[in-house]
Amino acid sequence: MLLALPTLVLLAGLLAYPLGRMLVLSFQDMELRHLFSGSTPPWAGLDNYTEILTDGEFWAVVRRTTIFTVVSVAVSVVLGLAVALLMLRVNRPVRLAMVISMLFVWAIPQLVSAQIFKWMVDADFGVVNHVIDQIPGVDFANHSWFADPTQGWIVITTLVVWAGVPFLAITLHAGLTQVPRDLLEAATVDGASGWQALRSITLPILKPLVVIVTTLSVIWNFGLFTQVWVVRDSKPEQDYQTLATYAFTQAFGRNNYSLGAAISVITVLLMLGVMAFYIRQMFRIGDVD
């Protein structure tokens, strides 16, 4: 216990204190003048929570964020697994090239890649429209990718998946190398197809890892902020608000700091379910060891 004390103090300082402040803030009514003067905002009780929970706009944002998370995580994990399986099949130099290029993708800061995507799909100056426009009979000059939210979200999801696949592929590839060769060979001898071997041998062995990377992806993608923010020019429209941008817009755009804090608290509560799943899985793996 004594040995763990420094860690606990550090965790309390870095996590518990700001979380506690946010909780208190969500029950107050803090405005710009309190921020500038440093004075204590008045107590508001549950007002912020009632306002949010009875607001249809908030529930639309929750729904949108959830759909985005489910779709983007599913696509990322399937693609990541596919790339990982491909890495097993190719020869060494190709595998090395794949790892290096994926590390580059991973190394690019989100802000930078989002900005580049924004330029690429720009209606007036973007390269994507220019290239599509070259196809005979297709008029894509000045096509707006964000007028229709479905198209806009496809662009944003592509960006998130593109940035997310490297981590998944490299992690899952590491897991795949741990699948015993002789098991797969035995299955082949017994006449199992590649698909059967994948479903009955590889995936069950890989499952704990898949669960962990999926949970992590859910946690990350649920908090989507940077990509939407940059791509929508730091003022996302209603159709592009996620929980994170919505809380930010309320708190820092409109200076309803307490409302923003309350939205964040609700987000944390929504995430707790997923977190519990993740932590349980972590302990399970610990038990096996």
């Binding site: 720009d122 209606a123 007036d124 000045n142 707006s144 007028a147």
Partner: peptide
């Protein structure tokens, strides 16, 4: 008009310059 109808006026001088 032509171009991205979801844009605001921030780019308009640059677009006109094209």
């Amino acid at each position: 008009s032509s171009g991205d109808i979801t844009k605001d006026e921030n780019d308009q001088a640059a677009i006109f310059a094209q």
